[in-house]
């Protein structure tokens, strides 16, 4: 089960990227038609995407009672930080679930007033995360796909000291 599921899930982002690439390629190679293809409606997010850039200790929890100690553990795991860097265009480089490749993701405002993190597609998209809270030093987010959320729980990102620099992950 696990392995098959893994493959299916791993293919998803690739497929969506492919689809996105095809759409983009189509736009670029067609000499300006009369009507521009309509860009998907993405509202501006409540926070600037640059707020995510930096080095973070990350941990996850399921029960609210575990939230405080999860935050403590996230801070402790700054020795293996998760590093978010600016992307080539307007986004930031991050991972989606179950895929070791980093993609350019962005913050998106949803019609529901929530803030989403994901590919440049209208939220909520299956691979999006929902930003539950965001301050300068702590971000709380969750995957919106129910099965992915069930497996990973809710993530706490705690900014590491001197976190703006991209520290390389190292073996301990």
């Amino acid at each position: 089960m696990s392995c098959l599921a893994t493959r299916v899930h791993r293919t998803l982002p690739v497929l969506s990227m492919l689809a996105a690439a095809l759409v983009l390629a189509g736009c670029a190679s067609t000499p300006a038609p009369v009507a521009q293809p309509q860009r998907p409606q993405i509202r501006p997010a409540a926070y600037p995407v640059s707020a995510l850039v930096g080095s973070w200790g990350i941990a996850s929890y399921r029960e609210d009672r575990d939230r405080p100690r999860t935050e403590t553990m996230a801070r402790q795991h700054c020795r293996t930080p998760y590093v978010i860097t600016p992307g080539p265009t307007d986004g930031i480089m991050m991972h989606v679930a179950d895929d070791p490749k980093a993609y350019e993701l962005t913050l998106k405002g949803g019609a529901d007033g929530k803030t989403y993190l994901g590919f440049e597609t209208p939220p909520p998209h299956a691979q999006d995360r929902e930003i539950l809270s965001l301050t300068e030093n702590v971000i709380v987010m969750r995957f919106i796909a129910p099965d992915v959320h069930a497996r990973y729980g809710t993530f706490v990102y705690v900014r590491c000291p001197g976190g703006a620099q991209a520290a390389a992950p190292r073996r301990t």
Partner: peptide, 25 residues
Amino acid sequence: DWTPPPEMIERQPYLPRFMAGGPGN
């Protein structure tokens, strides 16, 4: 609770470095 080993973090950089116990862990 679960703390994924470093080599697993290296292969799967998106994993939380610590996961509080519970179903799915």
